[in-house]
Amino acid sequence: MIDTARAHRPPVAKIGDEDLERLLLIRHFELTLLKLFEQGALNGTTHTCLGQEHIPVALSALLREEDFVFSNHRGHGHFLARYADPHGLLAEIMGREGALCGGVGGSQHIYHERFLSTGVQGESLPVAVGVALRLKRTTPGALACAYIGDGTFGEGAVYEALNMAQLWRAPLLVVVENNGIAQSTPTSAQMSGTIAARAEAFGVRHHRIATVDLAHIRDEMGPLVAAVRQTSAPLVAEFVTRRIGPHSKGDDARPEQERLQAELNGWHRAYGEAFPERFARIDARQRELVARVAAEVAARPAVTRGRA
């Protein structure tokens, strides 16, 4: 079964060093977080995007500086794909000086330039509609992009937002990272029907992508994202993906076989096999980079809070 999966996996196209660097930066950042948690160096919780890194990295090339990105609880990849600032993000998560949001927001509440993540499922979508309407008026061509998961579709706010976005022609790009599982509950046990049909019910364009190939994703998404900008019509882009790590930490209830399968079908293996030498070189470099970042940030003093 594992071998056939490999045989069915389409080959990946050429990838630039920068993309590979970004993918592996996120991978090592997330692995380092899990390690730091094990060591008791982090407070609270975190949600890693292991296995899903290729989605924001692919999309970041299609986004512009003036676009506004909304992220969710699983947002480290979304952030790092847009801003190469692992120091600031890790300092935020560790509560150290240089933290992006003073250590108040932590892993899932980041606001930096035009990037905002917030912790309650679905609530960012109506906000993104409001931001998109403002952008449409003041910065034509700019869009609001909101990352959500398949589990988010349980929230009513999603439907209120899709309705308003289509009704009012908001330049809104909804990126659904459909990883087939909401915390521990499979999507099949929490969603009737499909994401496509739900988008269609509002007259919202929907596009589904299953590949991990960055070039392929950009080829398909490029014209669709351009249409969001030009026609101010919302788009739901559904990425079929697999989380290879736990929901937060040590809480992966899936059979090991399933997790392994996800890993075998992921971008990491595809690019590793397609470009072994370059991959290994960049992988080693990013591993060292993140180790350095972690050591530097851990050595900083705790962030202090000046009350508003």
């Binding site: 109506p126 409001g130 931001v131 309407l133 209120e160 309705n163 308003m164 009704l167 009012w168």
Partner: peptide, 21 residues
């Protein structure tokens, strides 16, 4: 703007407008 019957949604849209300027 007259809105759909979506109190949560429209307060969110209002917050989005306000957040963006």
């Amino acid at each position: 703007r007259s809105t759909p019957l979506s109190e949560g949604g429209i307060v969110g849209v209002g917050a989005g407008l306000a957040l963006a300027g």
